[in-house]
């Protein structure tokens, strides 16, 4: 039978031993062992409490309270250490999961749009944002739509089989996208604001800068009171959108059978931005970028539109050249060979 003092002593020892052992714990698993050793069914503290039967009724509450205090202290310490060990274990895990972030990423490939088609769409989008609808025309066209309706003179050299691919006397591979103008004007009455991009064909041997198949983009606006000032503004806006607001344009009088007046538009040399360098022969201007003009009254009339009431402008540009300039591609053949290593660059 243990007395009060003895029991107090025992409780004190238990507390000290428990705290001591706890301070040496390094593993979460060991924690449970300690808890069982001291606080479990057969634990030391529990045993002491069982021995409380030999105490007097005045001594029992004192020891009881002391025992509870000790229990609490040990439990709190266990929890505290549990928390600490958990954090340590977590940090340990994080540390061991460190990887070499400089190693290459997994190969998740997205496909690539063809640079030429991509540029064509970029151009179309610029014009769409200016209210131009997108229309398509056939690659195989009638001589009428490709030449006659466009006011091309009968003896124009471009009609020669040395320039144009013919299927029959009346059917050819379109040499420009301009026939779409005729189709659009015949199909809808003004106001018209359309753009059409697509394949065109000329009898040109394949070399670094020429291909028998190439791409053009055509634009047409027909309405009342359309002026050449409108044409200039539209072209300026387009060029600034494509090349940036520093780009300058120069409208030079030129000749096309289907526009009158006609003009060619140069843009500042892309290398020196207009200052003059070797690439532009010191002129400051790059080669002509596009052709344009006011729709010839004969063309309007051919489509059933009265030139006294309506006027319009049209423009056309070569998409392949713009793509080549934009991406620094020096050989047009690359555009049609479709080497994956080439396509993957865009």
């Amino acid at each position: 039978m243990k007395g009060e003092t003895e029991m107090k002593e025992m409780l004190g020892t238990i507390k000290e031993n428990a705290l001591n052992e706890l301070s040496q714990i390094t593993k979460l698993d060991d924690l449970e062992q300690i808890r069982v050793k001291y606080l479990g069914k057969k634990g030391e503290l529990t045993q002491v409490l069982r021995g409380m039967g030999g105490l007097s009724p005045e001594e029992r509450p004192i020891i009881g309270q002391l025992a509870n205090e000790v229990r609490e202290i040990i439990e709190n310490e266990i929890e505290r250490i549990r928390g600490k060990l958990k954090v340590e274990a977590k940090n340990e895990k994080l540390k061991s999961e460190k990887i070499d972030i400089s190693m290459p990423g997994k190969d998740i490939e997205k496909g690539h749009r063809h640079p030429l088609i991509g540029v064509m769409e970029e151009l179309e989008n610029i014009f769409m944002s200016m209210g131009f609808s997108i229309v398509q025309g056939p690659e195989v066209e009638t001589v009428y739509n490709n030449f006659d309706a466009l006011n091309s003179p009968e003896n124009h050299p471009s009609r020669d089989p040395s320039d144009t691919f013919y299927i029959t006397d009346d059917i050819l591979l379109r040499t420009h996208t301009s026939p779409v103008q005729i189709r659009a004007m015949k199909q809808s009455k003004p106001p018209l604001r359309i753009v059409s991009a697509g394949r065109t064909f000329r009898f040109d041997d394949v070399d670094d800068t020429h291909s028998p198949m190439f791409h053009q983009l055509e634009g047409l606006v027909v309405d009342k009171n359309i002026t050449m000032a409108n044409l200039k503004h539209t072209i300026d806006m387009f060029i600034k959108e494509l090349f940036g607001s520093d780009m300058k344009t120069r409208f030079r009088p030129h000749y096309f059978p289907f526009t009158e007046p006609s003009a060619e538009v140069d843009v500042s040399c892309l290398k020196c931005m207009g200052k003059g360098c070797e690439a532009c022969n010191g002129t400051g201007w790059s080669m002509e970028l596009l052709g344009c003009g006011m729709v010839h009254p004969n063309v309007l009339r051919n489509c059933g539109i009265d030139p006294e009431v309506y006027s319009g402008f049209a423009f056309g540009l070569g998409v392949d050249r713009i793509a080549m300039v934009k991406y620094g591609i020096n050989n047009i053949r690359l555009l049609f060979e479709n080497d994956m290593r080439f396509l993957n660059q865009f």
Binding site: G111, H114, M213, F336
Partner: peptide, 12 residues
């Protein structure tokens, strides 16, 4: 393109 194919363009 999203699936990973490259667009090509060939002669008519």
């Amino acid at each position: 393109t999203g699936i990973g194919l490259n667009e090509i363009t060939t002669y008519s």
